[in-house]
Structure formats: structure tokens, C-alpha cells
Design a binder for these strands. Structure first.
Length: 638
RNA sequence: GCCCCCUUAGCUCAUUUGGUAGAGCAACUGAUUUGUAAUCAGUAGGUGGCCUGUUCGAAUCAGGCAGGGGGCACCA
């Protein structure tokens, strides 16, 4: 006699065990038609699940958020069905739900082509029309393994083998087609509707391990309605428009070329932006008590052996052999260099914390397939610093670093920031007592920042725990930028010491920290965040002066002169073109301020100003406008 | 690094099955001297990523290399 409690608090007593479908039907016929699945005592189940014990039950319909997951999961199955109908002999592996859709990994010798994708999608539509009923069976493990082996599904058999003994092996049938699956699923395939689309084929390693064979992954997107699907596709197009690689070209900021893969050729405008960032960071760091230094790009292999980098990372290091047959490595990190500076002269506890910062250009031979515009390069500038301090100072310094990073991010309009905290991994160096202290210190820093955080258990570096700073951009993408790591290893290896109060030599703790990480990458993030429409202070060209006709050229040049005196980055357009043309051209270049001058302005010593993306104009006295733009050009206060 | 795809004028892109390339914008020249997102006309511009092969003939077919793109793996 199960008593079913519904979300509105109502309790219904049944004589016998009931299915979710029965419950829905008892509530209303319309609900039974809309019902997709169940939530029984918080767990999601199939609609036809039999309930024999007292339970609280919610009927899931398209209105629930969870419905989207069901739709996407079923779409993955339909994709697999379509593939196996069209390409017999293809083995299925896994097909989970992901953000915005699903994927399914297949094992097949011949690659899927773009045309195949269209065919598969068409077949999926037909399968949806067929509207096969879904049923669930629980199989005995051995039988399941043998069955899947017998039909040539070796990957499935392997998956079943690896499922923990306690769990039951559930097989879902959509008509004749069946798959090992945890579920739950929609009562019938037709319920997924047609708001889905296959997006792309890609390679993916079996079980995510690069030692394994490569499977073919088909990605798809799936939504509740056609409108949602269209909106998603539209958003993708919009995101493409702000791609920094595209904008970098059209805005004349930088380029790459094949002779130096993964290294940026900064054009004048891109470099102006880059330098503005550096200036800003330099100012903020000096204010925060950092001492800026600079260390060699190329250092003898021996030092990298001592620091441990050679052993762990030499395949990612560029090296060079000089005519005197010495092997040098081009620095992939700045920390050993900073340790050398620290080591000059005897340090006292009174010198700590010592904060050495550097805009250090580092080179890492990243795997070719990982390169991606400015976001992942082989040669980049870190806004790096190392804080040498005592164990007791870790907390205070970590709090300061966290605050500095958060403040700086906010200056760029990144309000949505989260932290990832990673604690001790299995393989590590250092005393557990020091790990206790370091982890504690980082956690305190996080709590003091009052920002949302997640814990990555066991994901810390072998030399210490770390915090990673993640910011969310204007279109909701997350970027991991800043990092703060406690290092219990390197100072000892490189012989860093200080004399403590008791007169004894001790090894300092080193905090590695980067605010943006790679300045190249951060520039890319900024370009995409602002969709190329950089704020005035960052814009490589801040003002374009557009005279109406030739008789206004003289006045325009006078304005240019005054703006340049104030350090405002200005161009003047003396082309023999109509004002419409000039406005269009410089708007497309995303110059934030256009100054138009004609006869009126020339007579009144005024200027007409038009801001990017706005149609309204503002006419005012020249000196007023210049002084207000000068203020706007200053780096933001934090 | 691995899988798939791509590489044609400065940029964006055409050239259907092999018969040695074409447009728009940009550039240049001339006319026009213009009031808030493209004035008109003309000129010039290409070893079709690179190499090798098949063929009477290759942008087109095959092989190799490089770079790029989408993923996977990697990211001290």
C-alpha cells in the first residue's frame, strides 16, 4: 500500500504498486500525455518505474529543467541508432549529455564525412517519426557481456565488465535497438522532438587515454523547441564574430605565420594594447609592494637540472647549443631566475616577504594540436611574480594576492569570478605538517575573498597546493587565468635561505603567482569579451578626427596636435571621401570616439563627437572635450 | 602528438565532372569637396600553401610536408 506524496504536498494511497504513468494519469489525462519521467525521492527514474514503497514523486514534463537532459540523452541514442542503421558494423561506445547537447563515440574504420553527418541527421528524424517505445530490462552481468560480445559490440562488453559489482546492468530497448545505459529515458523516442542538429565529427580517444585507439565522436545539439535551437545557433554565430583571431586580423592587431607557429607577430595597434596592459599591471604591482626584475631568457641546462624542470619538462623546452657546445634552455618559467636574484646576498627574516615580479617572456614547446590563436601559444609573456616568505606569512600574502587579482579583474568589467582550490596530490614533496599549514593558508585566503569556489581534491602541484582564478566573460564563457601556488620544493632545491630571528638558516616558502597568466592570452580574452569594442583607455586608436572637406583639414590638424600632446592615441582621416564613408570605415575599425569637424565647428572652436555604437552626437568646446577624454584615458583606479 | 577537415589576389569568397583563374571590398589614378555607417569611373594585382607523381594537359586526381580549423590528449 504505497503512499505517494506529490510536490504540492498531497498524499495519495494506492492499493498496489503503481507506475509513474498511473500516478500521472490519476492526476490528469493531460499530465499523463506530457509526462516524460519521474523523480522518486529525489532520484530520476523512467516513467514506467513501478513504485511499491511510500515515496515522494514528481512527474517530470518538458517544463522541468531536467527534461532537457532526457531529450539530449535520448538524442544520443537516436544518433547511435541512425549510425548503426546506416553503417552496419560500427560499434557504439559511450554517448553522454554535455552542455548544449550530446555526443556519441563510435568505433568504425572509415571516417564519417560531412555528408554522412547530414544522412545520419536525416535518419534520426525518421527514427523520431517512428516513435519506438522505450523499455528497460535488467540483465545478469555475464549474460550482458556475452550478448554484447556476440553481436560484435566489444567496447560495450568492456564497459559492462568495468561496472562495479554492486550496480545492476540495465539495458534500454528502443524498438529492437538496445544499449547498455544507466537511464532514465523518455517513454518513447518521438518525445525528443526535432529541435536537434548534428554539429561536427571529431576524434576522441577511447576512455580519454591517448594510449588507446581513437574513436570517432559525433557532436550534436538538442533543445526543447525549434526556437531554442535557432537561438543557440544564432549565439554560436555571434560568438564567431568576436573570435579574437578574426578581429585580430580585421583590427590589424597581430598575425601568425607558419615560420613561427604559436608565436605572435604584434602589429603596432596590438602592441599598443599589450603595452597599455603591461603599464597598468606594472603600476598596480608596484603599489602592492612588488619589486620588478628581469632575468635571462636563456640559461644553462645545469640550472634547469637543479630546479627539476629538466627532468620533468625537458620535452616541452626549447634548447639551443652554442658554438662552445654548451646546452642552454630558453626559459619556460621565471621562477629559477627569481631564485637566483633572491640568492644574491644574505637574506634576513626582516627582508621577507620579498616579492619579485617580472613580465617575463617564456617559451614552451606546446603540442602542435593545442595551439589556438592567442589563447594557447608557444611563446608568451607572464605577469609573473614570486613571493619569498616565511611559513607564517603564507596566509597574509595569499590574502593579498587574492585581493589584488580580484580587484584587477574587476577593472576590466569581469564581475563573475570563481576560484578553484586544489589540495595535496598523492605524489608530492614536503612534510605533511607544512602541507597542512599551506592548505590552511590558501583556504583562509579564499574565505577572506568571499568568492565562490570549488575544491579539486588531490589536484594540487607536487610541490604545493594552489588556487586558480576563473573569470566569466560577457558571453558566459569561463577562462582560467590567475594562479597562486605554494611551493615547498624549489627554494630548497635552488639553495634559497634566510637567517631567522634565532640566528638559524631557514628555507623560505615561495609563492608563485600570476594575475592574468599569459598576457597574450589575456589580450585575446579581452578582445572577445569586448567583441573588439575596447574601452577608451585600452583602445589602440582612441580618437579618429574626420574633417568634412578639405577646407577643414587645417582645423582638424590643430585638434590632432592638441590630442597628441595629451597622449591620446589619435588618427586623422584626410581622405577625399564623404563623411558617411569615413564614419562607416572608422566605426568598423571599432575606434571608440569619432570627432567630426566642419565649418560650424571650425568657427565656434567646437567639435562634434560620436561614440562607437551610438548615433547621437554631442557638440562641445574643444578644450572641454579634450580634458574629459584625457580623464577617460587614464587607467582605472582599483 | 592523435583523428577529421581546410589552404585560390592585401581581405572575404567563386571557378560542378582535369583544358593553365573570377567577383566584391581594399590599393592606385582621375573626377567629385561632400554634415553622421559605402560618390562615380578607370587601372593594376595571382609560381592556386610547398614538394613529388599520374596525365598530351593539374587549382582540380594521388602521395608527402608545412600551416590553419574543429575535437581528443596535454597545459610545470
Amino acid at each position: 500500500m504505497p503512499i505517494i506524496q506529490l510536490p504540492d504536498g498531497k498524499k495519495v494511497t494506492y492499493e498496489n504498486a503503481v507506475t509513474g504513468f498511473d500516478i500521472a494519469k490519476d492526476i490528469s489525462i493531460s499530465l499523463s500525455k506530457k509526462a516524460l519521467a519521474l523523480q522518486v525521492n529525489g532520484e530520476y527514474k523512467d516513467l514506467d518505474t513501478t513504485i511499491s514503497k511510500d515515496s515522494s514523486v514528481k512527474i517530470i514534463t518538458l517544463e522541468d529543467d531536467y527534461a532537457l537532459e532526457l531529450l539530449r540523452h535520448d538524442s544520443a541514442h537516436v544518433c547511435a541508432m541512425a549510425v548503426q542503421e546506416l553503417f552496419p558494423g560500427t560499434q557504439v561506445t559511450i554517448g553522454p549529455v554535455i552542455d548544449n547537447g550530446f555526443y556519441y563515440d563510435f568505433a568504425r574504420k572509415e571516417p564519417f564525412t560531412e555528408d554522412d553527418l547530414a544522412k545520419i541527421e536525416k535518419r534520426m528524424m525518421e527514427i523520431v517519426d517512428r516513435d519506438d517505445k522505450t523499455t528497460r530490462e535488467v540483465w545478469e552481468r555475464k549474460k550482458a557481456v556475452e550478448h554484447f560480445k556476440s553481436i560484435g559490440e566489444h567496447y560495450k562488453a568492456e564497459i559492462i565488465d568495468s561496472i562495479p559489482g554492486k550496480e545492476e546492468i540495465s539495458i534500454y530497448f528502443h524498438g529492437k535497438w538496445h544499449d547498455l545505459c544507466r537511464g532514465p529515458h523518455l517513454p518513447s523516442i518521438g518525445k525528443i522532438g526535432k529541435a536537434f542538429k548534428l554539429m561536427k565529427v571529431a576524434g576522441a580517444y577511447w576512455r580519454g587515454d591517448s594510449n588507446n585507439v581513437m574513436l570517432q565522436r559525433i557532436y550534436g545539439t538538442c533543445w526543447k523547441t525549434k526556437k531554442d535551437l535557432d537561438e543557440y545557433l544564432h549565439n554560436l554565430e555571434e560568438a564567431e564574430k568576436r573570435d579574437h583571431r578574426k578581429l585580430g586580423k580585421t583590427m590589424d592587431l597581430f598575425h601568425f605565420q607558419e615560420e613561427s607557429p604559436g608565436a605572435v607577430f604584434w602589429h603596432q595597434k596590438g602592441w599598443a594594447l599589450f603595452q597599455t596592459l603591461v603599464e597598468f599591471m606594472r603600476k598596480k604591482q608596484l603599489e602592492a609592494g612588488y619589486k620588478e626584475v628581469n632575468t635571462p631568457e636563456i640559461i644553462d641546462r645545469a640550472l634547469w637540472e637543479k630546479s627539476g624542470h629538466w627532468e620533468k619538462f625537458h620535452e616541452y623546452m626549447y634548447t639551443t647549443i652554442t658554438p662552445d657546445e654548451r646546452t642552454f634552455a630558453i626559459k619556460p618559467m621565471n621562477c629559477p631566475g627569481h631564485c637566483q636574484i633572491y640568492n644574491q646576498g644574505l637574506k634576513s627574516y626582516k627582508d621577507l616577504p620579498l616579492k619579485l615580479s617580472e613580465f617575463g617572456k617564456v617559451h614552451r614547446y606546446e603540442p602542435s594540436g593545442s595551439l589556438h590563436g592567442l589563447m594557447r601559444v608557444r611563446s608568451f609573456t607572464q605577469d609573473d611574480a614570486h613571493i619569498f616568505c616565511t611559513e607564517e606569512q603564507i596566509t597574509e600574502e595569499s590574502v593579498k594576492v587574492t585581493k589584488l587579482i580580484l580587484d584587477i579583474y574587476k577593472a576590466f568589467g569581469f564581475e563573475n569570478i570563481s576560484l578553484k582550490y586544489a589540495d595535496r596530490p598523492e605524489k608530492r614533496v614536503g612534510e605533511d605538517s607544512v602541507w597542512d599549514k599551506s592548505e590552511q593558508a590558501l583556504l583562509e585566503a579564499i574565505k577572506a575573498s568571499k568568492v565562490e569556489y570549488t575544491i579539486n581534491k588531490g589536484e594540487g602541484a607536487f610541490y604545493g597546493p594552489k588556487i586558480e582564478f576563473v573569470l566569466r566573460d560577457a558571453i558566459g564563457r569561463d577562462w582560467q587565468c590567475g594562479t597562486l601556488q605554494v611551493d615547498l620544493n624549489l627554494p630548497g632545491r635552488l639553495g634559497a635561505t634566510y637567517i631567522d630571528k634565532d640566528g638559524k638558516k631557514k628555507i623560505p616558502v615561495m609563492l608563485h603567482r600570476a594575475l592574468f597568466g599569459s598576457l597574450e592570452r589575456f589580450t585575446g580574452i579581452l578582445i572577445e569579451h569586448y567583441a573588439g569594442k575596447l574601452p577608451f583607455w585600452l583602445s589602440p586608436v582612441q580618437v579618429a578626427i574626420l574633417p568634412i572637406s578639405e577646407e577643414h583639414h587645417h582645423y582638424a590638424k590643430e585638434i590632432l596636435n592638441q590630442l597628441e600632446k595629451k597622449g591620446i592615441r589619435t588618427i586623422i582621416d584626410l581622405k577625399n571621401e564623404k563623411i558617411n564613408y569615413k564614419i562607416r570605415e572608422h566605426s568598423l575599425e571599432k575606434i571608440p570616439v569619432l570627432m567630426i569637424c566642419g565649418t560650424k565647428e571650425m568657427q565656434d572652436k567646437t567639435i562634434t563627437l560620436r561614440r562607437l555604437g551610438q548615433e547621437e552626437q554631442q557638440t562641445a568646446k574643444l578644450d572641454e572635450i579634450i580634458s574629459s577624454l584625457f580623464k577617460e584615458a587614464q587607467t582605472p583606479k582599483i
